[in-house]
Design a protein around this nucleic acid. Structure first.
Lengths: 197, 197, 197, 197
DNA sequence: CATGAATGAGTTTTCATTCAT
DNA sequence: GATGAATGAAAACTCATTCAT
């Protein structure tokens, strides 16, 4: 039992070390010894807890996705959507997405990194596809509550919103903060969505 | 003079070889010998024409951006925007972007790759920033012709459009073709933009 | 006393695990964890019962040699050589050697493995030398009973026989069973020996 | 052309370095850097000329087998078997095999090493099988010239002879030179063969 | 200019061994 | 005694780069 706990903590520690490493180097450029150094453990340990470098990556991606799905779930748990009108709902959801996701630079960078890896790695691509499918489905079901239109429309709008948010997140990784009036763009987009729904 | 020409052709040949390589491997995973093999030249010459692997990358990025800017310039050259109404303009521009950019899977993949490299490479980030700045400015100036509103609004809409397109391009790299109703999402987005302008 | 017994059983268990491992991997390629896994014990205990990997090997070799010497001793125990004529003796001894030693593929493989290790390991070489010396002496003494000739001749014939058997065992490890008419070769050799003695 | 020559020489140099290394360490224990050190080249070179460690081994085995087949071919070239009687032929062939093969300790050691590798490596096993098949066929055809008996008998005798020689070679690797009266055993065996044919 | 041989730093991975619990 | 986490040395292999020819 205690053993199991230690194992989980070590793994967590290693995944967080990878997270730190990815702030300054790509996954490929990050060596197993780099991760070990940041985690403060011997590099052999990484091969004790993981089957190899790719295994670390795969579990890291699960961890990142899980982390943000948990964040969203917890946020949703504090809200009772049935009490909200269209406007309040849009404001709430944009508030959350903008601050926690789109404008979260570290997160955006991590996702660009994962996205790139997914180009050449089917397992990673699968994970990414599932995560986005999940997100699209969730948003669609939320949007559906506020429109009389058919579900196809809700889905369509949700996909557009996510695409837009992703694009904005992408921009945030290359433009200096403040050099693009991100906040204003997001605000206006929010208004449009409100009009559309 | 002739020599210069030959040199340019050799370089072009090498950059196109890199382009081919990037369809199946990341830049990091692509070795200089890989590029040389595809280009049909000895790997030594790559060090003659370029100062190193990073130099190839940098020049490749210029080449890609230049290529697509040329495409857009040429396309623009065939149009006289002053003859178009708002609707026709939107249809034209969406037609071009959708088919040549957003739904061009190879291009999207290349851009994801470049975007990822830009995370850890300031020179690449610079190039990317300039390219997008340029694109935003161009689109803004085109949009401005069709609205009475201030330029800030045109810029805002343009950025949103590009963000959306980028997001959709991103999706196209992970979802199987046809599994996401991309075409329909793009069509509806086009309609909304038409209403907004 | 009981403790001692448990210890001996544990060791036996480990040596047998090594024997199993050697069917599919060389000693070098067999890791201590492999042996532990097959033995169904924690790899740490291997270092408790043995001083290191080489110690396991050394004790394993003793165990293998001891095992086959015991087999031969037991087999001899059931026979009263004084009742046999030359022909019967040769038939008996060839029957035993052929079936239990020369054509025992697993044993042959193990011996090739040990023989190779002995090339670079004096301790192993010693064990092997003693085992073969012992075998040669035993066979010589048996052969002596049936010939009037001097002992040198008996020794000479015995060595030849063992060399031949070893060579045949060697062949059995590379030729598919049946592809070399091993049985017939052994039969004819037996005949010749009969004529010689 | 000159390039090709250099390549062949380098490869030869490396294979001979491996040969030297195998005098004191097993192939597994011999690292690529060991071979490189003995060959007096950078270890990277080994990966330039060979696809990997196994490739070196495979080419080395070809080289060893080729070397001894050439030796035998050249030796045969100097003899006109048709001029020999049974006795002279046996004397000649035993003279060659004993001195150049069976009592060549380095060669015997190399073959024990290769034999062990063949236990776990099908490609090596194939090479060994072919070499011995070849040898058996050659010897059979030589023996056939001197007997009226059928070919099956010639083949049978040849296999027995090779098995015996191999066994003796094996012994030479563990017994101190002179401790086993190898020469006498070989002489007597030769006599017997003469009687048999 | 072109070639390809050579270099050496760096990467992932394996594993015998140690040792705290 | 038993466990399994941790260590660190060493292995095979890759590859950008250099440079003599």
């Amino acid at each position: 039992m205690a053993r199991k706990r230690v194992q989980e903590e070590r793994k967590q520690q290693i995944l967080e070390a990878l997270n730190t490493c990815l702030q300054e180097k790509s996954f490929q450029q990050t060596s197993i010894k780099d991760i070990a150094r940041v985690a403060g453990v011997n590099h052999g340990v990484l091969h004790y807890y993981f089957t190899g470098k790719e295994d670390i990556l795969l579990q890291y991606i699960d961890y990142v996705i899980e982390y943000y799905q948990t964040q969203m779930r917890e946020w949703l748990g504090t809200k009772d959507l049935s009490l909200y009108g269209k406007k309040e709902f849009i404001e709430e959801i944009f508030g959350f997405i903008n601050n926690r996701i789109t404008l979260n630079l570290n997160l955006s960078r991590i996702f660009v990194e994962i996205w790139e890896i997914s180009l050449y790695n089917a397992a990673v691509r699968d994970k990414l596809r599932h995560a986005y499918r999940h997100w699209m489905t969730e948003l669609t079901s939320m949007v559906s509550r506020f429109i009389d239109d058919d579900d196809a429309f809700a889905s369509n709008v949700s996909i557009s919103m996510i695409a837009f948010w992703e694009g904005m997140a992408l921009f945030s990784t290359i433009f200096e903060p403040g050099s693009l009036d991100t906040v204003e763009v997001l605000r206006r987009f929010q208004e449009r969505i409100l009009e559309i729904l």
